[in-house]
Nucleic acid binder design. Sequence first.
DNA 1: ATACATGCAAACACTTTGCAGCACA
DNA 2: TGTGCTGCAAAGTGTTTGCATGTAT
Lengths: 131, 131
Amino acid sequence: MREHGETKNRNTLQRRLVLETVRSMHDHPDAESIYAKISRENPLVSKATVYRNLKLLAKQGQILHIPIPDGADCFDFNIAPHYHLKCRGCSGVFDVDLPYQTDLCSRVEENHGFVIEGHQIVFSGLCPECQ
Amino acid sequence: MREHGETKNRNTLQRRLVLETVRSMHDHPDAESIYAKISRENPLVSKATVYRNLKLLAKQGQILHIPIPDGADCFDFNIAPHYHLKCRGCSGVFDVDLPYQTDLCSRVEENHGFVIEGHQIVFSGLCPECQ
DNA sequence: ATACATGCAAACACTTTGCAGCACA
DNA sequence: TGTGCTGCAAAGTGTTTGCATGTAT
């Protein structure tokens, strides 16, 4: 018997392909790049399926969904919470070596009546290449 | 003689209208709501002009542009840097009473070769109404 | 057998742009 | 007087969805 709202997910070729592809790309690819890479080997997979599976895998916690201001959202094989920088020059997304600020959420909750579930920080600036 | 890339901006009725409207709305409106409010009084103003002026005013620093994950970007009359919470229930955007973390950028710069120009934090959770 | 998943194309939400005419400085 | 701005519509980008068919369990 399943919990309310839960669904049983199937282990399809397409889903495995999307997961493997994200895990093989370590440069914060967006849905388009992931689709492109899959297409090269497996041109029958549709873009809609890639989007659907990216969303599902992110909800399951198997990949990380990174919303990017002014651009396509991207995805990360590294599911440990961490922060990113978007380069103003090349529009690339990079990991930032700043520890996850666990105290931020509690500090906001003390101040207001909000229930905080998470936060994300996006830095903007220039990567070494673009300076 | 003007600096490179600088342009002289005109003070048009539409531009004044957009600025005044953003200043009169204190609930983090998106471009659509701003356009709707302007349209009510002034149906001749086009949506493209609203978008163009929002972008220009934000670049000039007269209003604050707030990129919102999974939704339309919104704008703020309050130009002091501050953080926001997006409510998972009503999708509303709220100010968060957390001081601007001036040290975050320098802490990242120490670690990497990045030039950091700014950062933004978006919290997600539930507002008092939606709990 | 029956949900769940897929492929396709169309729809969608948000934003930008090309162009001809208009108006601020 | 001339460049910047406008309105309009069309195009662009990123993502989701309806539907008939396919497939994992």
